[in-house]
Design a protein around this nucleic acid. Structure first.
Lengths: 282, 282
DNA sequence: CCGATCCATGCCTCCAGGGTATCGATCGGC
DNA sequence: GCCGATCGATACCCTGGAGGCATGGATCGG
Protein backbone atom coordinates (compact mmCIF):
# COMPACT_ATOMS: atom_id res chain seq x y z
CA UNK A 1 0.00 0.00 0.00
CA UNK A 2 1.48 3.33 -0.90
CA UNK A 3 1.06 6.45 1.12
CA UNK A 4 -2.33 8.08 1.63
CA UNK A 5 -2.82 11.52 0.14
CA UNK A 6 -4.08 14.38 2.27
CA UNK A 7 -6.98 14.93 -0.11
CA UNK A 8 -8.27 11.45 0.63
CA UNK A 9 -8.05 12.06 4.37
CA UNK A 10 -9.84 15.39 4.05
CA UNK A 11 -12.59 13.77 1.98
CA UNK A 12 -12.94 10.97 4.51
CA UNK A 13 -13.18 13.46 7.35
CA UNK A 14 -15.90 15.45 5.61
CA UNK A 15 -18.02 12.31 5.18
CA UNK A 16 -17.29 11.18 8.74
CA UNK A 17 -18.49 14.53 10.04
CA UNK A 18 -21.57 14.84 7.86
CA UNK A 19 -22.42 11.11 7.71
CA UNK A 20 -23.96 12.03 4.35
CA UNK A 21 -22.15 11.85 1.01
CA UNK A 22 -24.26 14.52 -0.63
CA UNK A 23 -23.76 17.15 2.05
CA UNK A 24 -20.09 16.30 2.44
CA UNK A 25 -19.58 16.67 -1.30
CA UNK A 26 -21.32 20.04 -1.28
CA UNK A 27 -19.08 21.17 1.58
CA UNK A 28 -16.00 20.08 -0.34
CA UNK A 29 -17.19 21.74 -3.52
CA UNK A 30 -17.19 18.54 -5.58
CA UNK A 31 -19.94 16.28 -6.90
CA UNK A 32 -21.23 13.37 -4.89
CA UNK A 33 -20.09 10.59 -7.26
CA UNK A 34 -16.49 11.82 -7.16
CA UNK A 35 -16.60 11.73 -3.38
CA UNK A 36 -18.09 8.23 -3.29
CA UNK A 37 -15.35 6.99 -5.56
CA UNK A 38 -12.61 8.73 -3.62
CA UNK A 39 -13.73 7.21 -0.33
CA UNK A 40 -14.13 3.79 -1.92
CA UNK A 41 -10.59 4.07 -3.25
CA UNK A 42 -9.29 5.01 0.19
CA UNK A 43 -11.02 1.97 1.70
CA UNK A 44 -9.56 -0.26 -0.99
CA UNK A 45 -6.06 1.07 -0.40
CA UNK A 46 -6.30 0.68 3.35
CA UNK A 47 -7.88 -2.73 3.00
CA UNK A 48 -10.53 -1.93 5.59
CA UNK A 49 -14.08 -0.59 5.40
CA UNK A 50 -14.52 2.86 6.90
CA UNK A 51 -18.30 3.30 6.50
CA UNK A 52 -21.33 1.04 6.65
CA UNK A 53 -23.56 2.38 3.91
CA UNK A 54 -27.08 1.64 2.95
CA UNK A 55 -28.97 3.79 0.53
CA UNK A 56 -30.57 5.42 3.57
CA UNK A 57 -27.78 5.78 6.09
CA UNK A 58 -24.02 6.12 6.54
CA UNK A 59 -22.28 5.01 9.72
CA UNK A 60 -18.63 4.70 10.77
CA UNK A 61 -17.08 1.27 11.22
CA UNK A 62 -14.63 0.71 14.12
CA UNK A 63 -11.77 1.44 11.70
CA UNK A 64 -13.51 4.60 10.58
CA UNK A 65 -13.98 5.76 14.16
CA UNK A 66 -10.30 5.15 14.84
CA UNK A 67 -9.30 7.05 11.73
CA UNK A 68 -11.31 10.20 12.48
CA UNK A 69 -9.06 11.64 15.12
CA UNK A 70 -5.85 10.37 13.56
CA UNK A 71 -6.82 11.90 10.23
CA UNK A 72 -7.59 15.23 11.86
CA UNK A 73 -4.26 15.15 13.61
CA UNK A 74 -2.37 14.22 10.45
CA UNK A 75 -4.05 16.97 8.42
CA UNK A 76 -3.20 19.48 11.13
CA UNK A 77 0.41 18.31 11.03
CA UNK A 78 0.54 18.85 7.26
CA UNK A 79 -1.01 22.30 7.58
CA UNK A 80 1.41 23.12 10.36
CA UNK A 81 4.37 22.14 8.20
CA UNK A 82 3.14 24.45 5.44
CA UNK A 83 2.37 27.37 7.75
CA UNK A 84 5.66 27.19 9.56
CA UNK A 85 7.68 26.89 6.36
CA UNK A 86 5.91 29.97 5.04
CA UNK A 87 6.61 31.92 8.20
CA UNK A 88 10.25 30.84 8.24
CA UNK A 89 10.58 32.29 4.76
CA UNK A 90 9.12 35.68 5.64
CA UNK A 91 11.42 38.66 5.32
CA UNK A 92 11.30 39.06 9.09
CA UNK A 93 10.53 35.75 10.83
CA UNK A 94 8.44 36.10 13.97
CA UNK A 95 7.39 33.93 16.85
CA UNK A 96 3.59 33.83 16.93
CA UNK A 97 1.97 33.54 20.34
CA UNK A 98 -1.80 32.94 20.49
CA UNK A 99 -3.79 34.22 23.44
CA UNK A 100 -7.44 34.87 24.08
CA UNK A 101 -8.35 38.49 24.75
CA UNK A 102 -7.88 38.99 28.49
CA UNK A 103 -6.77 35.40 28.92
CA UNK A 104 -3.20 35.96 29.97
CA UNK A 105 -3.70 36.15 33.73
CA UNK A 106 -1.63 39.33 33.73
CA UNK A 107 1.59 37.42 33.10
CA UNK A 108 2.13 38.30 29.47
CA UNK A 109 4.29 41.42 30.08
CA UNK A 110 6.56 39.47 32.44
CA UNK A 111 6.77 36.62 29.97
CA UNK A 112 7.71 38.84 27.06
CA UNK A 113 10.26 40.71 29.17
CA UNK A 114 11.88 37.47 30.30
CA UNK A 115 11.89 36.23 26.71
CA UNK A 116 13.81 39.27 25.53
CA UNK A 117 16.59 38.34 27.96
CA UNK A 118 17.00 34.91 26.32
CA UNK A 119 19.35 34.14 23.42
CA UNK A 120 17.98 33.07 20.00
CA UNK A 121 14.90 35.28 20.20
CA UNK A 122 12.68 36.45 17.38
CA UNK A 123 10.26 39.38 17.46
CA UNK A 124 7.07 38.13 19.13
CA UNK A 125 3.77 38.59 17.34
CA UNK A 126 0.82 38.16 19.69
CA UNK A 127 -2.39 37.09 17.98
CA UNK A 128 -5.80 37.02 19.61
CA UNK A 129 -7.44 33.79 18.53
CA UNK A 130 -10.70 32.42 19.83
CA UNK A 131 -9.48 28.89 19.28
CA UNK A 132 -5.87 28.98 20.32
CA UNK A 133 -5.63 25.17 20.35
CA UNK A 134 -6.52 24.98 16.67
CA UNK A 135 -4.08 27.77 15.83
CA UNK A 136 -1.35 25.88 17.60
CA UNK A 137 -2.21 22.53 16.03
CA UNK A 138 -2.26 23.77 12.46
CA UNK A 139 0.86 25.89 12.75
CA UNK A 140 -0.65 29.38 12.58
CA UNK A 141 0.85 29.90 16.04
CA UNK A 142 4.13 28.68 17.53
CA UNK A 143 2.92 28.78 21.12
CA UNK A 144 -0.23 29.67 23.06
CA UNK A 145 -1.41 30.50 26.54
CA UNK A 146 -3.91 27.80 27.55
CA UNK A 147 -5.61 26.65 30.72
CA UNK A 148 -5.12 23.19 32.15
CA UNK A 149 -7.48 21.30 32.46
CA UNK A 150 -9.97 23.44 30.50
CA UNK A 151 -8.17 23.22 27.18
CA UNK A 152 -7.20 20.01 25.44
CA UNK A 153 -3.45 19.84 25.92
CA UNK A 154 -2.84 16.42 24.36
CA UNK A 155 0.15 16.46 22.08
CA UNK A 156 1.49 19.72 23.48
CA UNK A 157 4.43 20.32 25.77
CA UNK A 158 3.58 22.79 28.51
CA UNK A 159 5.18 25.04 31.10
CA UNK A 160 2.94 26.24 33.97
CA UNK A 161 2.80 29.98 34.52
CA UNK A 162 0.20 30.51 37.20
CA UNK A 163 -2.08 28.29 39.25
CA UNK A 164 -5.39 29.77 40.23
CA UNK A 165 -8.28 28.57 42.36
CA UNK A 166 -11.51 28.12 40.41
CA UNK A 167 -14.33 30.56 40.99
CA UNK A 168 -17.88 30.48 39.67
CA UNK A 169 -19.01 33.66 37.93
CA UNK A 170 -22.71 34.36 38.40
CA UNK A 171 -25.11 37.26 37.91
CA UNK A 172 -25.49 39.18 41.18
CA UNK A 173 -29.17 38.27 41.09
CA UNK A 174 -28.35 34.57 41.16
CA UNK A 175 -29.45 32.69 44.33
CA UNK A 176 -25.89 31.42 44.91
CA UNK A 177 -24.25 34.79 44.26
CA UNK A 178 -23.66 35.80 47.88
CA UNK A 179 -22.36 32.43 49.08
CA UNK A 180 -18.74 32.25 50.25
CA UNK A 181 -18.18 28.92 48.53
CA UNK A 182 -20.07 26.45 46.38
CA UNK A 183 -19.63 22.90 45.10
CA UNK A 184 -19.80 21.92 41.46
CA UNK A 185 -22.94 19.84 42.00
CA UNK A 186 -24.77 22.94 43.18
CA UNK A 187 -24.43 24.26 39.65
CA UNK A 188 -26.46 21.34 38.31
CA UNK A 189 -29.25 22.69 36.21
CA UNK A 190 -27.27 25.73 35.15
CA UNK A 191 -25.82 26.11 31.68
CA UNK A 192 -22.16 25.90 32.59
CA UNK A 193 -19.61 27.24 30.12
CA UNK A 194 -17.51 24.33 28.83
CA UNK A 195 -14.44 24.09 26.70
CA UNK A 196 -16.47 22.79 23.76
CA UNK A 197 -18.51 26.00 23.62
CA UNK A 198 -15.83 27.75 21.71
CA UNK A 199 -18.41 30.15 20.43
CA UNK A 200 -17.23 32.56 23.09
CA UNK A 201 -14.50 34.66 21.55
CA UNK A 202 -13.34 36.66 24.52
CA UNK A 203 -13.57 36.90 28.25
CA UNK A 204 -15.52 40.14 27.97
CA UNK A 205 -18.09 38.51 25.73
CA UNK A 206 -18.40 35.61 28.15
CA UNK A 207 -18.94 38.01 31.06
CA UNK A 208 -21.56 39.84 29.07
CA UNK A 209 -23.45 36.64 28.39
CA UNK A 210 -23.28 35.63 32.04
CA UNK A 211 -24.74 39.01 33.02
CA UNK A 212 -27.58 38.32 30.58
CA UNK A 213 -28.29 35.06 32.42
CA UNK A 214 -27.49 32.90 29.40
CA UNK A 215 -25.00 30.78 31.28
CA UNK A 216 -22.60 30.67 34.20
CA UNK A 217 -18.89 29.86 34.11
CA UNK A 218 -16.17 28.41 36.31
CA UNK A 219 -12.95 30.30 35.67
CA UNK A 220 -9.52 30.83 37.21
CA UNK A 221 -9.66 33.64 39.76
CA UNK A 222 -7.24 35.88 37.90
CA UNK A 223 -9.64 36.18 34.98
CA UNK A 224 -12.34 37.59 37.29
CA UNK A 225 -10.45 40.63 38.52
CA UNK A 226 -11.79 43.22 38.03
CA UNK A 227 -15.35 42.04 37.80
CA UNK A 228 -18.32 43.85 36.28
CA UNK A 229 -20.62 45.32 38.90
CA UNK A 230 -23.49 43.08 37.81
CA UNK A 231 -21.52 39.84 38.38
CA UNK A 232 -20.38 37.95 41.46
CA UNK A 233 -17.45 35.55 41.83
CA UNK A 234 -17.82 32.66 44.30
CA UNK A 235 -14.96 30.22 45.03
CA UNK A 236 -15.65 26.65 43.97
CA UNK A 237 -14.50 24.31 46.70
CA UNK A 238 -14.38 20.97 44.92
CA UNK A 239 -13.00 21.69 41.45
CA UNK A 240 -9.37 21.17 40.43
CA UNK A 241 -7.27 24.34 40.41
CA UNK A 242 -6.82 25.89 36.98
CA UNK A 243 -3.32 26.41 35.66
CA UNK A 244 -2.35 28.93 33.02
CA UNK A 245 0.29 27.23 30.90
CA UNK A 246 2.44 28.11 27.95
CA UNK A 247 1.88 25.35 25.39
CA UNK A 248 3.76 24.46 22.19
CA UNK A 249 3.75 21.47 19.87
CA UNK A 250 5.51 18.55 21.53
CA UNK A 251 7.68 17.89 18.51
CA UNK A 252 8.82 21.48 18.11
CA UNK A 253 12.56 22.02 17.94
CA UNK A 254 12.70 25.73 17.10
CA UNK A 255 15.24 27.47 19.36
CA UNK A 256 12.96 30.48 19.68
CA UNK A 257 10.19 28.29 21.12
CA UNK A 258 12.64 26.72 23.52
CA UNK A 259 13.69 30.22 24.60
CA UNK A 260 10.07 31.14 25.25
CA UNK A 261 9.65 27.99 27.34
CA UNK A 262 12.69 28.92 29.43
CA UNK A 263 11.28 32.41 29.86
CA UNK A 264 7.97 30.94 31.03
CA UNK A 265 9.79 28.79 33.54
CA UNK A 266 11.60 31.77 35.00
CA UNK A 267 8.35 33.76 35.20
CA UNK A 268 6.70 30.82 36.95
CA UNK A 269 9.57 30.51 39.42
CA UNK A 270 9.40 34.21 40.21
CA UNK A 271 5.74 33.74 41.12
CA UNK A 272 3.07 36.43 41.30
CA UNK A 273 4.73 39.77 41.73
CA UNK A 274 3.96 41.01 45.29
CA UNK A 275 1.72 44.06 45.60
CA UNK A 276 0.13 43.61 42.19
CA UNK A 277 -2.91 41.60 43.20
CA UNK A 278 -4.99 44.07 41.25
CA UNK A 279 -6.41 43.87 37.75
CA UNK A 280 -4.62 41.86 35.11
CA UNK A 281 -2.60 44.04 32.83
CA UNK A 282 -3.75 43.90 29.26
CA UNK B 1 -3.13 28.06 -1.19
CA UNK B 2 -4.69 24.66 -1.05
CA UNK B 3 -3.44 21.81 1.04
CA UNK B 4 -0.09 20.16 0.39
CA UNK B 5 -0.13 16.56 -0.72
CA UNK B 6 1.94 13.95 1.06
CA UNK B 7 3.68 13.05 -2.19
CA UNK B 8 5.04 16.57 -2.44
CA UNK B 9 6.35 16.42 1.12
CA UNK B 10 7.96 13.04 0.54
CA UNK B 11 9.65 14.33 -2.62
CA UNK B 12 10.86 17.41 -0.80
CA UNK B 13 12.30 15.28 2.00
CA UNK B 14 14.15 13.04 -0.42
CA UNK B 15 15.82 16.06 -2.03
CA UNK B 16 16.53 17.63 1.37
CA UNK B 17 18.25 14.44 2.50
CA UNK B 18 20.24 13.82 -0.67
CA UNK B 19 20.83 17.47 -1.61
CA UNK B 20 20.96 16.11 -5.15
CA UNK B 21 17.98 15.89 -7.50
CA UNK B 22 19.34 12.99 -9.50
CA UNK B 23 20.04 10.73 -6.54
CA UNK B 24 16.78 11.70 -4.84
CA UNK B 25 14.84 10.88 -8.00
CA UNK B 26 16.56 7.50 -8.24
CA UNK B 27 15.67 6.77 -4.64
CA UNK B 28 12.05 7.69 -5.31
CA UNK B 29 11.94 5.62 -8.48
CA UNK B 30 11.04 8.54 -10.76
CA UNK B 31 12.96 10.54 -13.31
CA UNK B 32 14.85 13.66 -12.32
CA UNK B 33 12.80 16.15 -14.38
CA UNK B 34 9.57 15.01 -12.72
CA UNK B 35 11.15 15.57 -9.34
CA UNK B 36 12.46 19.02 -10.27
CA UNK B 37 8.99 20.04 -11.42
CA UNK B 38 7.29 18.62 -8.35
CA UNK B 39 9.58 20.49 -5.97
CA UNK B 40 9.21 23.70 -7.99
CA UNK B 41 5.43 23.32 -7.79
CA UNK B 42 5.64 22.84 -4.01
CA UNK B 43 7.72 26.01 -3.71
CA UNK B 44 5.26 27.93 -5.85
CA UNK B 45 2.32 26.76 -3.77
CA UNK B 46 4.02 27.62 -0.50
CA UNK B 47 5.20 30.93 -1.87
CA UNK B 48 8.68 30.40 -0.46
CA UNK B 49 11.88 28.96 -1.85
CA UNK B 50 13.03 25.72 -0.24
CA UNK B 51 16.33 25.17 -2.05
CA UNK B 52 19.09 27.36 -3.37
CA UNK B 53 20.10 25.64 -6.58
CA UNK B 54 22.94 26.21 -8.92
CA UNK B 55 23.77 23.76 -11.64
CA UNK B 56 26.49 22.49 -9.32
CA UNK B 57 24.95 22.47 -5.86
CA UNK B 58 21.71 22.23 -3.93
CA UNK B 59 21.31 23.77 -0.46
CA UNK B 60 18.37 24.28 1.90
CA UNK B 61 17.02 27.78 2.49
CA UNK B 62 15.89 28.75 6.02
CA UNK B 63 12.33 27.78 5.03
CA UNK B 64 13.58 24.46 3.75
CA UNK B 65 15.47 23.76 6.94
CA UNK B 66 12.34 24.52 8.95
CA UNK B 67 10.24 22.27 6.74
CA UNK B 68 12.47 19.20 7.00
CA UNK B 69 11.46 18.15 10.49
CA UNK B 70 7.87 19.29 10.18
CA UNK B 71 7.51 17.34 6.93
CA UNK B 72 8.94 14.21 8.54
CA UNK B 73 6.57 14.59 11.42
CA UNK B 74 3.55 15.16 9.18
CA UNK B 75 4.37 12.16 7.00
CA UNK B 76 4.71 10.02 10.11
CA UNK B 77 1.32 11.25 11.29
CA UNK B 78 -0.27 10.27 7.97
CA UNK B 79 1.36 6.84 8.07
CA UNK B 80 0.25 6.44 11.66
CA UNK B 81 -3.34 7.21 10.73
CA UNK B 82 -3.24 4.55 8.02
CA UNK B 83 -1.57 1.92 10.17
CA UNK B 84 -3.88 2.41 13.09
CA UNK B 85 -7.00 2.37 10.95
CA UNK B 86 -5.83 -0.89 9.43
CA UNK B 87 -5.17 -2.43 12.81
CA UNK B 88 -8.53 -1.26 14.15
CA UNK B 89 -10.18 -3.11 11.28
CA UNK B 90 -8.39 -6.39 11.93
CA UNK B 91 -10.59 -9.31 12.93
CA UNK B 92 -9.00 -9.25 16.37
CA UNK B 93 -7.68 -5.79 17.22
CA UNK B 94 -4.51 -5.80 19.30
CA UNK B 95 -2.47 -3.33 21.25
CA UNK B 96 1.05 -3.31 19.80
CA UNK B 97 3.87 -2.67 22.25
CA UNK B 98 7.37 -2.17 20.83
CA UNK B 99 10.41 -3.14 22.89
CA UNK B 100 14.02 -3.82 22.11
CA UNK B 101 15.17 -7.36 22.81
CA UNK B 102 16.21 -7.40 26.46
CA UNK B 103 15.29 -3.74 26.84
CA UNK B 104 12.44 -4.08 29.30
CA UNK B 105 14.41 -3.83 32.54
CA UNK B 106 12.57 -6.95 33.73
CA UNK B 107 9.32 -5.01 34.20
CA UNK B 108 7.40 -6.29 31.22
CA UNK B 109 5.73 -9.26 33.00
CA UNK B 110 4.53 -6.97 35.80
CA UNK B 111 3.30 -4.42 33.29
CA UNK B 112 1.34 -6.95 31.28
CA UNK B 113 -0.14 -8.49 34.42
CA UNK B 114 -1.25 -5.08 35.70
CA UNK B 115 -2.69 -4.27 32.28
CA UNK B 116 -4.85 -7.37 32.32
CA UNK B 117 -6.50 -6.08 35.51
CA UNK B 118 -7.60 -2.87 33.75
CA UNK B 119 -10.91 -2.40 31.95
CA UNK B 120 -11.00 -1.82 28.17
CA UNK B 121 -8.04 -4.04 27.42
CA UNK B 122 -7.08 -5.62 24.12
CA UNK B 123 -4.76 -8.57 23.62
CA UNK B 124 -1.20 -7.23 23.72
CA UNK B 125 1.13 -7.97 20.86
CA UNK B 126 4.77 -7.36 21.78
CA UNK B 127 7.03 -6.62 18.82
CA UNK B 128 10.79 -6.44 18.96
CA UNK B 129 11.80 -3.42 16.94
CA UNK B 130 15.28 -2.00 16.68
CA UNK B 131 13.86 1.48 16.21
CA UNK B 132 10.95 1.65 18.61
CA UNK B 133 10.66 5.42 18.26
CA UNK B 134 10.04 5.15 14.53
CA UNK B 135 7.52 2.34 15.05
CA UNK B 136 5.67 4.50 17.51
CA UNK B 137 5.77 7.61 15.34
CA UNK B 138 4.45 5.94 12.22
CA UNK B 139 1.74 3.94 13.96
CA UNK B 140 3.14 0.44 13.64
CA UNK B 141 3.13 0.39 17.44
CA UNK B 142 0.67 1.86 19.95
CA UNK B 143 3.20 2.17 22.76
CA UNK B 144 6.86 1.44 23.38
CA UNK B 145 9.35 1.01 26.20
CA UNK B 146 11.98 3.72 25.81
CA UNK B 147 14.78 5.19 27.86
CA UNK B 148 14.82 8.80 28.97
CA UNK B 149 17.05 10.64 28.07
CA UNK B 150 18.62 8.22 25.58
CA UNK B 151 15.63 8.10 23.23
CA UNK B 152 14.00 11.11 21.64
CA UNK B 153 10.73 11.45 23.54
CA UNK B 154 9.49 14.68 21.95
CA UNK B 155 5.83 14.43 21.05
CA UNK B 156 5.23 11.42 23.24
CA UNK B 157 3.44 11.15 26.56
CA UNK B 158 5.37 9.03 29.02
CA UNK B 159 4.98 7.15 32.29
CA UNK B 160 8.17 6.25 34.16
CA UNK B 161 8.61 2.60 35.06
CA UNK B 162 12.07 2.29 36.55
CA UNK B 163 14.93 4.68 37.25
CA UNK B 164 18.38 3.22 37.01
CA UNK B 165 21.85 4.58 37.63
CA UNK B 166 24.03 4.69 34.51
CA UNK B 167 26.90 2.24 34.23
CA UNK B 168 29.61 2.02 31.62
CA UNK B 169 30.02 -1.36 29.98
CA UNK B 170 33.61 -2.12 29.03
CA UNK B 171 35.66 -5.12 27.98
CA UNK B 172 37.34 -6.66 31.04
CA UNK B 173 40.67 -5.91 29.42
CA UNK B 174 39.89 -2.18 29.34
CA UNK B 175 42.12 0.00 31.56
CA UNK B 176 39.06 1.45 33.34
CA UNK B 177 37.35 -1.92 33.81
CA UNK B 178 38.25 -2.44 37.45
CA UNK B 179 37.46 1.08 38.65
CA UNK B 180 34.62 1.50 41.12
CA UNK B 181 33.32 4.63 39.38
CA UNK B 182 34.19 6.76 36.38
CA UNK B 183 33.25 10.14 34.95
CA UNK B 184 31.94 10.68 31.44
CA UNK B 185 34.99 12.70 30.44
CA UNK B 186 37.20 9.70 31.17
CA UNK B 187 35.51 7.98 28.24
CA UNK B 188 36.80 10.67 25.87
CA UNK B 189 38.55 9.00 23.02
CA UNK B 190 36.38 5.90 23.19
CA UNK B 191 33.66 5.16 20.65
CA UNK B 192 30.66 5.60 22.92
CA UNK B 193 27.36 4.08 21.84
CA UNK B 194 24.86 6.87 21.16
CA UNK B 195 21.17 6.98 20.40
CA UNK B 196 21.87 7.85 16.78
CA UNK B 197 23.76 4.60 16.21
CA UNK B 198 20.57 2.69 15.74
CA UNK B 199 22.51 0.11 13.85
CA UNK B 200 22.51 -1.95 17.02
CA UNK B 201 19.44 -4.16 16.94
CA UNK B 202 19.55 -5.75 20.36
CA UNK B 203 21.25 -5.53 23.70
CA UNK B 204 22.98 -8.86 23.06
CA UNK B 205 24.40 -7.57 19.81
CA UNK B 206 25.60 -4.41 21.55
CA UNK B 207 27.29 -6.49 24.28
CA UNK B 208 28.94 -8.61 21.65
CA UNK B 209 30.35 -5.59 19.88
CA UNK B 210 31.64 -4.16 23.17
CA UNK B 211 33.41 -7.43 23.89
CA UNK B 212 35.03 -7.14 20.47
CA UNK B 213 36.35 -3.73 21.46
CA UNK B 214 34.41 -1.90 18.73
CA UNK B 215 32.83 0.53 21.19
CA UNK B 216 31.78 1.04 24.79
CA UNK B 217 28.31 1.95 26.09
CA UNK B 218 26.66 3.76 28.96
CA UNK B 219 23.49 1.91 29.90
CA UNK B 220 20.97 1.67 32.74
CA UNK B 221 22.16 -0.81 35.33
CA UNK B 222 19.25 -3.18 34.86
CA UNK B 223 20.32 -3.89 31.30
CA UNK B 224 23.71 -5.09 32.50
CA UNK B 225 22.51 -7.92 34.74
CA UNK B 226 23.56 -10.59 34.05
CA UNK B 227 26.74 -9.56 32.32
CA UNK B 228 28.90 -11.64 29.99
CA UNK B 229 32.07 -12.89 31.65
CA UNK B 230 34.22 -10.86 29.24
CA UNK B 231 32.59 -7.53 30.14
CA UNK B 232 32.73 -5.25 33.15
CA UNK B 233 30.15 -2.73 34.39
CA UNK B 234 31.43 0.43 36.10
CA UNK B 235 29.05 3.01 37.63
CA UNK B 236 29.20 6.41 35.95
CA UNK B 237 29.20 9.09 38.61
CA UNK B 238 28.33 12.21 36.64
CA UNK B 239 25.67 11.14 34.10
CA UNK B 240 21.94 11.64 34.54
CA UNK B 241 20.07 8.56 35.76
CA UNK B 242 18.32 6.64 33.00
CA UNK B 243 14.60 6.07 33.27
CA UNK B 244 12.73 3.30 31.54
CA UNK B 245 9.42 4.80 30.44
CA UNK B 246 6.31 3.64 28.71
CA UNK B 247 5.75 6.06 25.82
CA UNK B 248 2.76 6.61 23.55
CA UNK B 249 1.78 9.30 21.05
CA UNK B 250 0.75 12.43 22.90
CA UNK B 251 -2.45 12.79 20.95
CA UNK B 252 -3.59 9.20 21.44
CA UNK B 253 -7.08 8.75 22.80
CA UNK B 254 -7.44 4.97 22.56
CA UNK B 255 -8.86 3.58 25.84
CA UNK B 256 -6.56 0.57 25.61
CA UNK B 257 -3.50 2.84 25.56
CA UNK B 258 -4.85 4.77 28.53
CA UNK B 259 -5.30 1.46 30.36
CA UNK B 260 -1.69 0.52 29.62
CA UNK B 261 -0.56 3.89 30.97
CA UNK B 262 -2.51 3.31 34.19
CA UNK B 263 -0.98 -0.16 34.47
CA UNK B 264 2.50 1.36 34.03
CA UNK B 265 1.75 3.85 36.77
CA UNK B 266 0.75 1.11 39.20
CA UNK B 267 3.86 -0.92 38.34
CA UNK B 268 5.99 2.16 38.92
CA UNK B 269 4.32 2.84 42.28
CA UNK B 270 4.88 -0.77 43.35
CA UNK B 271 8.60 -0.28 42.70
CA UNK B 272 11.20 -2.98 42.12
CA UNK B 273 9.94 -6.22 43.57
CA UNK B 274 12.13 -7.09 46.61
CA UNK B 275 14.28 -10.18 46.32
CA UNK B 276 14.34 -10.22 42.51
CA UNK B 277 17.46 -8.25 41.92
CA UNK B 278 18.56 -11.02 39.58
CA UNK B 279 18.47 -11.21 35.82
CA UNK B 280 15.75 -9.45 33.88
CA UNK B 281 12.99 -11.82 32.88
CA UNK B 282 12.54 -12.12 29.15
C1' DC C 1 38.39 25.48 -24.67
C1' DC C 2 36.14 21.11 -24.04
C1' DG C 3 33.87 17.54 -21.73
C1' DA C 4 31.42 16.20 -17.61
C1' DT C 5 27.95 17.14 -14.39
C1' DC C 6 23.53 18.57 -13.01
C1' DC C 7 19.27 21.17 -12.81
C1' DA C 8 15.58 23.22 -15.87
C1' DT C 9 12.56 23.17 -19.91
C1' DG C 10 9.84 21.43 -23.88
C1' DC C 11 6.90 18.07 -25.47
C1' DC C 12 4.34 13.88 -25.46
C1' DT C 13 1.55 10.23 -22.99
C1' DC C 14 -1.50 8.44 -19.74
C1' DC C 15 -4.49 7.97 -16.03
C1' DA C 16 -6.40 9.74 -11.66
C1' DG C 17 -9.89 12.61 -10.44
C1' DG C 18 -13.83 15.29 -11.59
C1' DG C 19 -18.47 16.11 -14.02
C1' DT C 20 -23.26 14.55 -15.78
C1' DA C 21 -26.67 11.16 -16.26
C1' DT C 22 -28.74 7.31 -14.43
C1' DC C 23 -29.55 3.07 -11.78
C1' DG C 24 -31.00 0.60 -7.68
C1' DA C 25 -32.34 0.31 -3.00
C1' DT C 26 -34.96 1.96 0.84
C1' DC C 27 -38.42 4.43 3.29
C1' DG C 28 -42.56 7.30 4.11
C1' DG C 29 -47.16 8.67 2.76
C1' DC C 30 -51.53 7.78 1.05
C1' DG D 1 -49.23 -1.97 -1.61
C1' DC D 2 -47.93 1.38 -4.77
C1' DC D 3 -45.46 5.69 -5.77
C1' DG D 4 -42.43 9.33 -5.23
C1' DA D 5 -38.47 11.06 -2.78
C1' DT D 6 -33.99 10.30 -1.14
C1' DC D 7 -29.38 8.82 -1.48
C1' DG D 8 -25.38 6.12 -2.56
C1' DA D 9 -23.24 3.48 -6.56
C1' DT D 10 -22.21 2.92 -11.39
C1' DA D 11 -21.37 4.15 -16.30
C1' DC D 12 -19.29 7.13 -19.34
C1' DC D 13 -16.70 11.07 -20.80
C1' DC D 14 -13.26 14.74 -20.34
C1' DT D 15 -9.49 17.48 -18.46
C1' DG D 16 -5.28 18.42 -16.05
C1' DG D 17 -1.48 16.99 -13.75
C1' DA D 18 2.23 13.80 -13.10
C1' DG D 19 5.68 11.21 -15.31
C1' DG D 20 8.97 9.86 -19.20
C1' DC D 21 12.41 11.22 -22.78
C1' DA D 22 15.21 14.47 -25.09
C1' DT D 23 17.61 18.53 -24.72
C1' DG D 24 19.09 23.13 -23.21
C1' DG D 25 22.01 25.95 -20.29
C1' DA D 26 25.10 26.82 -16.59
C1' DT D 27 29.23 25.68 -14.03
C1' DC D 28 33.51 23.51 -12.97
C1' DG D 29 37.84 20.75 -13.75
C1' DG D 30 41.53 19.89 -16.67
Amino acid sequence: MDRLETRELAYFLAVAEELHFGRAAARLGIAQPALSRSVARLERRLGVGLFERTSRSVALTPSGRALVEDARYALDAVSAAAHRAQRAGAVEPRLVLAIKVGGDGGRLPDLLAAYQREPDVLPVHVIFAADRCASLRDGRADAALLYDPIDDLRGFDTQPLLTDPPVAVLPTAHPLADRTGIRMDELRGETVHRRDDNVVGSIDELMHRIALGQLVAVLPRSLTVPLRADLAAVPVTDAAPLTLVLAWPGYSTAPSVAALARAAESVHRAGPEPGTAGPPIR
